[in-house]
Amino acid sequence: MAFLEIEHLEKSFGPTKVVKNFNLNIEKGEFISLLGPSGCGKTTVLRMVAGFETPTSGSIRIDGEDVVGLKPNRRNIGMMFQAYALFPNLTVAQNVAFGLKVAGVDKTESARRVTEMLELIGLPELGNRYPFQLSGGQQQRVALARALAVQPRVLLLDEPLSALDAKIRVSLREEMRAIQQRLGITTIFVTHDQEEALSMSDRVVVMHQGIADQIGTPFEIYNRPATKFVANFVGTLNTIEGEVMDAATGRIRIDGAEVTLGRAVPSGKITLAARPEMISLGAYPGRETQVKGTINDVHFLGSVIRIRARVGGSVLAFDTFNSSDAPPPKVGEEVTLSLAGRDLLVVGA
């Protein structure tokens, strides 16, 4: 039996069904991300777990206990919000101690726990400050300490990094993941940022129109997308139209070349997909198929250069590492691209 079980969860707002037959089992200590575009139902699922929304049908069990009928303040669930949600009238220490005070924890124990939490988030000296005296990143750390101080059964993170600038986001997400692993707390993280989801999670749930399209490890989600939506939403994807010549071996004709996937495919027209890192500029060992193309545009991103080349009717994006003695190709230049049939994904519905 999983620690957190969500079964046949559904939620409708009026005639609109925003969550449809959502099922998810989470093990104790696991970090799960709900990833999807705006309006896909990920936040609604999180809010139903927190108790802020009542499911239309289905069940949510935490450690064997059905919590659907429980009020939010009786669920012992910690939560972090995008808008920090620190109480402006309380100092940092008072904010962290809020839940402990509500729970009736005695003052000595509460003070010890507050000190412990502030040390955990690396802000032991800021206990007497008010939220308005802190930066966004510091406020979100305090929000994490406050959520963890009450030792919740589950930690819910509702896009907590969205309001922060890029550099702080990266450092804070690493810090949050480290704290989560150290405490071994079961965590559900809602985000629309695939990089956050892939880098932090044990498993990712990709949601689309209220349905969990795919549940898997970041590696599985990225490399073996189950649906066209997942393939397109997670990472950059080149789609190539082809015609199957031999369904048994997966021999397919694409723009002036042939690739063999080495596995059976449905016959007729087919859509193949390739990640940018599956395509190389020039000949490359192990990538047997070569196609001719023309450079469309070149984007210098620092250590990596992203190039787009027109191949027949498609535009393929691929990356090369920056090298000081090998300048990138110029726009309009004729190039040869290499790819391997076995790397290509067959995109389903």
Partner: peptide, 27 residues
């Protein structure tokens, strides 16, 4: 942000009276 502060307080175990007296009224 009344809604978020209320939800934050609820997630920390506070009931309506505590939310009104300790979170909303002081602010």
């Amino acid at each position: 942000d009344v809604a978020t502060l209320t939800e934050a307080a609820q997630s920390l175990g506070a009931g309506w009276t505590t939310i009104l007296a300790k979170v909303i009224l002081p602010n």
